[in-house]
């Protein structure tokens, strides 16, 4: 852990929420948005940070950037306590909020960049070099003179990403950077982030609800729920953690009652002569196939790998205490 760049040690954030329950009547409630959260991220890592709505992802990022002060625990980024030395840390980090822009809404994009050039004290040559590179990579050439409020969502997002990187930050936080982007824009942004991380060694922490972002970008994923870390490891490991299942799709020669397969395999769906059987991802499909082939008029079959979305949905649902489908 010598090279831990981001360090969280039992970090908490509690919000006091006041709610009107009637005329002049108020109810106070404490929301523990982040609960004894501990993890470290090394320099140059690219980490996906996922979890269901209200899990505490944005709250974590707000504490990492110094917007919010933790209610408890210890938090360091590059050795700096973000909420105490916010402006010092600001020189070293870039932030992109998918939901809102950090650009100056009424002014042309280039004005925001010029202002950041001065505000971050970026040396002239470095600024020009970075701007040229970002404009080329994010295809911003035609947009520089357009007021930010006239940009489409995807254009604005690319503009925001460039703004977050003009000063060569050591760490980039992205809170839902691909929200609302079309397929082409998503691909472009993902490719850009991958290159940024590979070539510049920028540490990246990314929250998203689009698991393809994670699949394509992050070797490490952290799952949180109710402010607590549920999983931390490679994406592939989620399958085991989530007790995922593979699916055997069987085409019989004609319609047939559901196959009476040996447990734990079971039929989950029947559609005419086609039947779907779920079985644990950790087991081989061969015995099951053999068993069916012996007893049923088998025409064709295929095995589907577990869908990461389904794995995570299952994980979220388990946490919420609901029945697992």
């Amino acid at each position: 852990m010598a090279d831990a760049f981001i360090e969280l040690d039992h970090v908490e954030k509690v919000f006091d929420v006041r709610r009107r329950t009637g005329f002049l009547k108020r109810e106070r409630r404490r929301v523990r948005a982040v609960d004894a959260l501990s993890f470290t991220v090394a320099r140059g890592e690219m980490v996906g940070y996922i979890g269901p709505n209200g899990a505490g992802k944005s709250t974590t990022i707000k504490m990492l950037t110094g917007i919010l002060t933790p209610s408890g625990g210890r938090l360091r980024v590059a050795g700096i306590d973000p909420s105490r030395e916010r402006t010092r840390l600001a020189h070293h980090m870039g932030v992109v909020f998918g939901q809102r822009t950090t650009l100056w809404w009424d002014l042309p994009l280039i004005d925001s960049y010029r202002l950041m050039h001065r505000m971050y004290r970026i040396p002239d040559a470095r600024y020009r070099e970075n701007l040229d590179r970002l404009v080329a990579l994010l295809d911003l050439g035609d947009l520089l003179d357009v007021p930010v409020r006239q940009l489409s969502l995807g254009q604005r997002m690319r503009g925001d990403i460039a703004a977050a990187l003009l000063h060569d930050p050591q760490v980039l936080y992205l809170d839902e950077p691909t929200i609302g982007l079309d397929v082409v824009s998503k691909t472009r942004v993902r490719r850009f982030l991958r290159e940024l991380n590979a070539e510049r060694g920028t540490t990246v922490l990314l929250t998203t609800h689009d698991l393809q972002d994670i699949e394509q970008l992050c070797s490490r994923v952290m799952v949180i729920d109710h402010g607590r870390l549920m999983y931390d490891g490679p994406l592939a490991g989620l399958h085991e953690a989530g007790e995922s299942e593979r699916t055997l799709v069987v085409d019989l020669e004609r319609e047939w009652p559901p196959i009476d397969a040996p447990a734990p395999a079971r039929v989950v769906r029947v559609e005419g002569p086609r039947q779907w059987l779920a079985f644990p991802a950790s087991r081989s499909a061969a015995p099951l196939v053999a068993w069916i082939a012996e007893r049923y008029p088998l025409a064709d079959l295929s095995v589907r790998e577990p869908d990461i979305e389904a794995v995570i949905a299952r994980m979220y649902a388990e946490r919420a205490g609901r029945a697992v489908p």
Binding site: T65, R86, T87, R100
Partner: peptide, 13 residues
């Protein structure tokens, strides 16, 4: 509207 957040991530008072 929460856009105050964006001022807090810039290196200026």
């Amino acid at each position: 509207d929460g856009s105050f957040d964006t001022l807090l991530v810039r290196p200026a008072p």
